[in-house]
Design a binder for these strands. Structure first.
Lengths: 264, 264
DNA sequence: CGTAGTGTTGAATTGAATCAAGTGTCGTGG
DNA sequence: CCACGACACTTGATTCAATTCAACACTACG
């Protein structure tokens, strides 16, 4: 991940995952299968189990709850609900958003398979955001007090969770830089590159993927309006850097996209 | 802390602190005295020792290094230096900033006494920002591997450090909302209110304080230009909400300042 | 006491927002 | 299976908040 690729989380947790579009034999496994253990989960190389040995993974597995899948638009939790767990995305995707007093919301983050949701609630014991599924999705729920207890027993887990939180902090600061100094085009290019590296992380194509969120969501996340996002995507397409058709996007010239960002 | 008061960290660590302007008997103690232990530190009620018992504080104390004071402009560390410690501000103040490829920097955070610096380096083992003193300042240095080891022994410390990091995450997300949807005036009002509650936290006046940073720093932090920050401060003064003279500021009408933010 | 850095103010410019009017797409129920 | 309605997206014209450019004042420090 370079400085220009904002939005790539380095974190994950147990979970089963399928490609967002048909691709391999793995297809046959139900994407939202809730019986897969941490040990056999396809994401365990990038998730909380990373750095844990077999017996440790088993202990982690014991505290993870594999909920029923969430339908598009369903909430994992809502702003100011009591904080009790963090969630690892197993399949699908989520958005977190914050509603201000005056009613309008801003998207604070998107979460792809293998990424951790809910850390904003740790300090105040209440979630600071609401989080909703962007498509049919599933998660592993990790009750936080149990995670803390287990972290105390397993230094590897404590270390790894510190790293996950540290990564979230570093990522949020990059977004701070992006929002405070980038133009609309730079923000959009950076966003696309960030998604690209996050999809790469879960073994999907770095150049062709589906945007699980609306243009409006992207705008709220990047501090732009829907219209601007739409215009910028059209402009990038005209320049031959991307090819967009509805939610389908293909990055045609990653180097030039990077160039947009470093030439500011 | 309300949603509108962005920038208030809920964290701290061992350290001695003096008021930024003459106020009490405490004045006689040297502000940068490096012999004060965590147990006798004036900040221990809001710092890492919070929630630790006497013997635990003693153990924490043993790993804390109390460095020589830093002069204005001196760096605690620089971007991409190897991460080895987090720092608790004992006195004075610091700014963190990120330099992008093209050379221009953006301020990512300000740190007042009792706040923790350097958590952006935990995940990648390199600091993501540079951090410099804004005035003559001192810190407690906490070597991170030792902090991790001690956290493993003291569940209270582990819990508290998770909370400190969680708080940093929640705070960064509030700034995300601020930068993506607030006007220049809303950002500035929010910034001042945030500073106010952070000064309150260390027992300083919530309404009169010195800005340790330049208008340029504020602008880089809020995603505005120096000129805009200057104009907004002048405008707020004309409206009778604040009184500014160089770095001295007085909040004359906190309720109206809050009103600026919730009326958006 | 001079100079570099910091801050203010004004005028002109501009990037993105807003306002407006569409078209396209998808999911649902008839 | 198609039609309808709601939502998502696009494109254009206009406006506006903040930036940029410019000139100057203050202050603080060596």
């Amino acid at each position: 991940m370079t400085n220009s690729e904002i939005g790539a989380n380095g974190q994950t947790l147990s979970g089963d995952i399928i490609p967002l579009r048909p691709s391999s034999a793995a297809q046959k496994i139900c994407p939202h299968n809730s019986t897969v253990s941490c040990a056999s989960c396809r994401l365990n190389e990038l998730c909380l189990p990373i750095a844990l040995n077999k017996s440790e993974i088993h202990q982690l597995d014991a505290i993870v709850e594999r909920n029923r899948p969430y339908k598009k638009g369903e909430h994992l939790y809502r702003q100011s609900d009591e904080f009790k767990a963090v969630y690892a995305v197993r399949s699908g995707s989520f958005k977190s958003y914050f509603l201000s007093n005056n009613g309008q919301g801003r998207v604070t983050g998107f979460f792809l398979p293998g990424e951790i949701i809910g850390m904003d609630g740790i300090a105040s014991h209440r979630y600071a955001n609401s989080t909703a599924a962007l498509e049919h999705s599933s998660v592993c729920e990790i009750p936080f007090t149990q995670l803390e207890r287990l972290s105390h027993e397993l230094p590897n887990l404590q270390h790894h969770f510190f790293a996950i939180m540290g990564n979230e902090i570093a990522k949020d600061q990059q977004i701070h830089t992006l929002l405070s100094s980038y133009t609309a085009e730079e923000r959009t290019a950076s966003f696309l590159l960030g998604l690209s590296s996050r999809y790469t992380r879960v073994s999907l194509s770095p150049t062709r993927f589906l945007l699980p969120m609306t243009r409006g969501d992207i705008g709220e996340y990047l501090g732009l309006t829907v219209e601007t996002v739409s215009r910028i995507l059209t402009a990038l397409q005209r320049k031959g850097l991307v090819s967009v058709s509805n939610r389908e996007i293909e990055l045609l010239d990653i180097e030039s996209l990077r160039g947009i960002i470093s030439t500011s």
